[in-house]
């Protein structure tokens, strides 16, 4: 294996594109090193992107925030601007791993790992976040929703890396929240998860919403029917029940060591309902 420090996104992209063997990007390394240790991943080239200028910074842009691909979870949590703008995104990113893992892990790594259970992914999807991709054919922007391709797979082409994720500006009276279910209180992979991002009018009626689920399908699911269930409502019990039902209907999970199909399905609905209530309160709505 060779280890390379990339000084620019172009250099990283070129090295990844040119490597005939198995090449991997190293940001936080909290998934990559585990896979290498397990011996099920033989890597020929590791490209460390942390020295790329700007890749560890958070900057304001067009009313939103651009978060560098190598910003670690703990750095995100220490950034007042992100915490204010996307508390649901931050709480999701902060759930990845332990305090120690937080010192290294990144949202983009969480996304590129391709796990359907990645915590930050549903929150980013609910926030309509967009990643910037650098590749052999130049730079492009892509919704987070379109990056996962299935367990362990992404739609990124050989030589493409994500350099940042953009959280777009949100209207007034917006709120978001992310909840996951794990058997313990920490240190587990999500068995089911839900992110809700919504906007209210002055009267507390939901005018826009995005609801995303994790760990209940081969990749993150954006549930339009769940959003429709709460748009135009004040999140009354009937709307919440419809939201949960829509989420359950969108689940196509598997039975495995972490949970059953029935459990994941039912819990996704419960979490979506609870997350919606938190997001509603954060948006300034009261019931």
């Amino acid at each position: 294996m060779r280890y390379m420090i990339a000084q620019s996104a172009k250099a990283a992209s070129a090295a990844l594109a040119e490597e005939p063997g198995n090449a991997r990007v190293l940001a936080g390394g909290t998934d990559l090193l585990v896979q290498m240790k397990a011996g099920n991943l033989r890597v020929d080239l590791v490209v460390d992107i942390k020295k790329i200028p700007g890749i560890r910074s958070i900057t304001a842009e067009a009313g939103g925030l651009r978060i560098g691909a190598a910003v670690a979870g703990s750095e995100l949590g220490e950034h007042a601007g992100v915490c204010a703008m996307g508390p649901g995104v931050v709480e999701a990113a902060r759930l990845i791993g332990s305090t120690q893992v937080q010192g290294r892990c990144t949202m983009v790594g969480n996304l590129c790992n391709g796990s359907p259970a990645g915590d930050s992914v549903p929150a980013l999807v609910a926030a309509a976040a967009v990643v910037r991709v650098e590749g052999p054919e130049g730079s492009r922007d892509c919704p987070v929703l379109d990056i996962p391709a299935g367990p362990g797979r992404t739609t990124l082409k050989k030589g493409e890396i994500i350099t940042s994720v953009f959280l777009p500006a949100r209207p007034e009276r917006s709120g978001d929240a992310y909840l996951r279910f794990i058997p313990r209180t920490e240190m587990d992979i999500a068995v089911a998860s839900a992110a809700v991002n919504l906007t209210l009018d002055a009267g507390g009626t939901v005018t826009a919403a995005r609801v995303a689920l994790g760990a209940v399908a081969p990749k993150v699911v954006l549930v339009d029917a769940a959003a429709r269930a709460i748009i135009g409502t004040k999140l009354d019990d009937a709307a919440l029940a419809a939201l949960a039902a829509a989420c359950e209907a969108a689940c196509t999970p598997i039975d495995d060591k972490r949970g059953t199909i029935a459990f994941r399905t039912s819990t996704a609905g419960v979490l979506a309902r609870r997350a919606a209530q938190i997001a509603y309160a954060r948006a300034g709505g009261s019931k």
Partner: peptide, 15 residues
């Protein structure tokens, strides 16, 4: 299926 501390879930301090 679960030969590691990730999925063999021993109690952590916050539990």
């Amino acid at each position: 299926q679960n030969p590691g501390f990730l999925d063999y879930r021993i109690p952590v301090a916050s539990d």
